[in-house]
Simulated scan of single mutants.
Amino acid sequence: MIYPIVAYGNNILKKEATEIQEGEDIKSLIGDMFDTMGNANGVGLAAPQINKGIRLFVIDSNLMLEEEDQEKGVRKAFINPIILDEYGDHYVFEEGCLSIPDVRAEITRPGKLTIEYFDENWNLREEEFSGMTARVIQHEYDHLEGILFIDYLKGLKRRMVKGKLLDISKGKVPTDYRMVYP
């Protein structure tokens, strides 16, 4: 099932997501989230973006990598994740979001992280990620905390996107995927 993407302005995007009961069968939801993400040409999708306020996101960082990149991409689901540490050199990269189409901004984040999460079989994992995969995880994890990438913008940069954000919240934005507006 392909879900519509929740647009900027919907309250669920600003709320902290709740934990999923351990052992709950969410494999079909995870599959639907991968399908929804692929349909929208995304590299990550958090449950709040499909109007589900639970601590779950999926990523496929393979889509962010170039052939010459040293790192390997990751395609997986993260259930009830907790970022344990973020470290390494901070770097700037232009981010976007399926819930905020046509808005991109340079965001600074640490280059590495350690995260604890359950996989789709409810096995507890602790892993370190770096580069583009770490960035995608950080972006999607922020969704579970009620944080959007535009929340990192200050001053003039924030004011420059204000009009676009208002248009998105009113449904005045073209997309190649279905959206739900506030």
Score class of each variant (00 low, 15 high):
residue 154 K to N: 14
residue 27 K to Y: 08
residue 72 K to H: 08
residue 119 D to M: 06
residue 152 Y to P: 06
residue 176 D to G: 13
residue 15 K to S: 07
residue 87 Y to M: 13
residue 151 D to G: 06
residue 142 D to G: 12
residue 96 G to Y: 02
residue 70 Q to C: 00
residue 173 V to W: 09
residue 10 N to K: 11
residue 158 R to F: 06
residue 130 S to D: 14
residue 178 R to M: 10
residue 13 L to A: 12
residue 60 D to E: 03
residue 163 G to K: 15
residue 129 F to H: 14
residue 101 P to E: 11
residue 134 A to Y: 05
residue 112 K to N: 12
residue 17 A to N: 01
residue 60 D to N: 13
residue 88 G to W: 05
residue 71 E to P: 02
residue 70 Q to T: 11
residue 66 E to V: 00
residue 32 D to S: 13
residue 1 M to H: 14
residue 101 P to N: 12
residue 45 L to V: 01
residue 110 P to L: 08
residue 11 N to F: 07
residue 118 F to Q: 10
residue 8 Y to A: 08
residue 5 I to K: 05
residue 55 R to M: 04
residue 52 K to P: 01
residue 115 I to W: 08
residue 35 D to W: 04
residue 122 W to E: 13
residue 105 A to V: 02
residue 122 W to G: 04
residue 60 D to R: 07
residue 167 D to W: 04
residue 121 N to G: 13
residue 89 D to E: 15
residue 160 M to H: 12
residue 92 V to G: 07
residue 98 L to S: 05
residue 94 E to R: 13
residue 18 T to G: 10
residue 36 T to D: 04
residue 121 N to I: 11
residue 149 F to R: 09
residue 158 R to Q: 10
residue 33 M to C: 05
residue 40 A to K: 11
residue 133 T to D: 01
residue 63 L to A: 12
residue 164 K to E: 07
residue 41 N to R: 09
residue 181 Y to H: 10
residue 32 D to P: 00
residue 52 K to A: 03
residue 180 V to I: 10
residue 49 Q to M: 14
residue 102 D to C: 06
